[in-house]
Design a protein around this nucleic acid. Structure first.
Lengths: 152, 152
DNA sequence: CTGCATGCAAAAAATTTGCATGAGG
DNA sequence: CCTCATGCAAATTTTTTGCATGCAG
């Protein structure tokens, strides 16, 4: 795996040309901001980040571009709790799920092949053709547990 | 199990009095409509249903009451895909998850103890104190698979 | 050049909140 | 009676859309 994690640009170009779409300055900037981001940014965070470099960009363009990234398979979206949609780069070969701390908001990723297999099995048993899935564990992260039943 | 599934009223009363809240006509009506409902109603559906019996009721009251039901543990909420929040009666002794058909919207429930156990295990391994979890499989239900790759 | 993309603002959709009035306990 | 609850409408929040103009190919 010689990859440094920077081939999203290639993949994006492929998707765009395959669909008669254009690689614009703002699409590149937004994608850049997205793939540079740690964690699970939401539209607001990406918008602010992109704006620093391109003050003229519109929020709608960020929404439109993130939808495009999701459609192309380069990004995945999730909504944790009731908050705004968050995005992350999708890793085709290794799906992962999330643990969300209900106290501090920390989002931790994990993956478990045994669970994945069981999910496939359950789906198959129902004649269901699974395309994707999503699993979220809510609770207290280690730090918040140790900090004890904090006064809210 | 002699229960006919009608003790929600008791449980609701308990929760209310324990929290200095009142059992109003509209709270009873909304809870009734909710527990009568099949499947996974959203606010709009509940609002329309309650309105038939109490034309004067406000949508905000439905929102407020459903939040109350969730807080009391009598109901659980989920957001499937990007749609409006849906609610269901919570079954304390048997958690279940959902399969959502991306073609026809059918929501099927399932539960799998092995998965639940693995979830606990994963959480524990991360020092995470799990309080609740949520798992959704997206894909095509049996009927939609059989119907074949419909022309959208 | 030609059509897709952008920016801006307005529109939608979902949910929450403020406030005067109503009604449980 | 006294407070909490309700109805209504306005406010919020998140996301989408319409349209004139811009720019990639």
């Amino acid at each position: 795996m010689p990859d440094t994690g920077l081939d999203w640009e290639e993949r994006l170009k492929e998707y765009l040309s395959a669909n008669d779409l254009r690689l614009t300055r703002q699409r590149r900037l937004i994608a850049e901001a997205f793939f540079e981001s740690e964690g699970h940014p939401n539209i607001d965070e990406l918008y602010l980040r992109v704006r620093r470099r391109a003050p003229h960009i519109g929020q709608a363009t960020v929404y439109r571009t993130l939808r495009l990234l999701v459609d192309s398979g380069l990004a995945a979206s999730s909504r944790f709790g009731g908050a705004a949609t968050r995005y992350e780069a999708s890793d085709d070969d290794h799906h992962h799920d999330h643990m969300i701390c209900i106290s501090c908001g920390l989002i931790t990723e994990f993956s478990n092949d045994a669970i994945e297999r069981l999910q496939d099995e359950v789906a198959r048993a129902h004649g269901f053709e699974m395309r994707s899935h999503k699993m979220e564990l809510y609770g207290l992260c280690r730090a918040c547990v140790e900090r004890g039943p904090a006064t809210s």
